[in-house]
Structures are given as structure tokens and as C-alpha cells.
Amino acid sequence: MSHTLINLTLPIVIQEIDHVLNEYPEHPYQLAFSVHELRQKLIAHILSHVPNRYVVEGVEESFRHPKVYNSSPLKERLHLETVVHGSILHILRENADWLSRHAPEF
């Protein structure tokens, strides 16, 4: 039987990025992160700053025992939201020169 490792955190991060970016003005925030490269940098930065959860697809149920986590879902959601906001600013700051050169393209 084939096994596949699935990152359960990635779709949640992508959803939270979309949610948070909707709170920001279109220019420069939404436009900047519509650029694939910057969006990938943002996702990678966030994933490196939050706990990631994985599941192995193809493993029998008897081997899949969910871990008990100390923090509440609300606390985790607030932490993720905070990391997303900080990461947006970090990636924009880190790529400010590139953005200023490509600003007319937006």
C-alpha cells in the first residue's frame, strides 16, 4: 500500500492569508501577494513560524491516534492570524527593492 504525507496546516494557512489580505488595501498588499513568487515566500515564511500537522494517507486507522494539543483552536487561530499579519509586513519589507522596481507593473 502506498503512503502519502499530507500537510494539514498548508490549506489552513492559505485560507488565513486570503482572509487577512482582504482586510488590507488592494495596493500594494493584495497586488504584491498576487505575484506567485511573493505569495510562495509568504506561505513558506508562515509555515516556518507555526506548528505544522501532518497525516499519512494510507495508514490503517489503528495507527492514527490524534495527538492532544495544549492550546485551544481559538488560541491557535489567533496565533496564526498574528503570524500572517507579521509575515505580510516582513515579506514586503524584505522585498521592498524588488517591489519598487516592479511597481509600475501593478
Rank of each mutant, 00 (worst) to 15 (best):
Glu61Leu: 15
Gln30Asp: 03
Ala103Cys: 00
Arg93Gly: 08
Glu57Gln: 15
His102Phe: 07
Leu80Cys: 13
Asn95Lys: 12
Trp98Ser: 06
Leu38Met: 06
Phe33Gly: 12
Leu92Cys: 01
Val59Leu: 14
Val83Trp: 09
Val59Phe: 08
His3Ala: 10
Pro66Ser: 09
Glu37Trp: 04
Val50Ala: 07
Ser72Asp: 04
His65Cys: 04
Tyr54Asp: 00
Arg39Gln: 06
Leu5Ser: 13
Leu21Ser: 04
Ile46Lys: 02
His79Tyr: 06
Phe33Ile: 11
His45Glu: 07
Pro66Arg: 14
Tyr54Ser: 00
Leu31His: 06
His45Asp: 09
Glu26Asp: 11
Leu78Glu: 07
His90Gln: 01
His49Trp: 06
Ala44Met: 08
Leu21Gln: 03
Asn70Val: 13
Thr9Met: 07
Leu21Ala: 06
Tyr24Val: 02
His3Val: 12
Leu99Pro: 02
Phe33Cys: 12
Ile17Glu: 01
Ile46Arg: 03
Thr4Leu: 15
Pro104Ser: 10
His45Met: 09
His79Asp: 04
Ser62Glu: 09
Pro66His: 08
Ala44Ile: 11
Phe63Tyr: 15
Val20Ile: 15
Glu94Ser: 13
Asn70Cys: 03
Arg101Phe: 09
Pro28Ile: 12
Val83Met: 08
Ser62Gln: 14
His19Phe: 15
Arg77Gln: 13
Ser48Glu: 07
Ser2Lys: 12
His27Gln: 07
Val35Trp: 06
Val56Asn: 02
Glu105Cys: 02
Lys75Met: 13
Val20Arg: 13
Arg77Trp: 05
Pro25Trp: 08
Val84Ser: 01
Glu23Gly: 04
Lys67Pro: 00
Leu8Asp: 10
Arg53Ala: 09
Leu5Ile: 15
Tyr24Leu: 03
Ile14Tyr: 01
Arg53Ile: 02
Gln40Ile: 08
Pro73Ile: 06
Val59Lys: 08
Ser100Arg: 13
His49Tyr: 06
Arg64Met: 12
Val35Tyr: 12
Ser2Ala: 10
Lys75Tyr: 13
Pro66Cys: 06
Ala32Val: 03
Pro25Asp: 14
Asp97Pro: 00
His102Val: 05
Asn95Leu: 04
Glu60Met: 06
Val20Trp: 02
Asn52Cys: 09
Val13Thr: 10
Val50Gly: 01
Arg53Asn: 11
Leu38Ala: 02
Asn52Gln: 12
Glu94Asn: 10
Gln30Asn: 03
His79Ser: 13
Arg53Cys: 02
His27Asn: 10
Gln15Val: 08
Ile17Lys: 08
Ser2His: 14
Asp97Val: 12
Trp98Thr: 05
Val68Asn: 15
Glu94Ala: 14
Pro66Met: 09
His27Tyr: 10
Val68Leu: 15
Val83Leu: 05
Val84Leu: 03
Lys41Asn: 03
His27Gly: 00
His79Ile: 03
Pro51Ser: 14
Val68Lys: 13
Trp98Ala: 12
Pro104Met: 01
Lys41His: 00
Ser87Trp: 03
Ser72Tyr: 10
Pro28Cys: 01
Leu5Val: 15
Leu89Lys: 00
Leu99Gly: 01
Gln40Ser: 15
His90Val: 00
Asp97Phe: 12
Thr82Gly: 11
Leu31Tyr: 04
His36Pro: 00
Ser48Leu: 05
Ile88His: 02
His85Gln: 10
Tyr29Gln: 13
Leu74Trp: 01
Leu10Asp: 05
Ile14Glu: 11
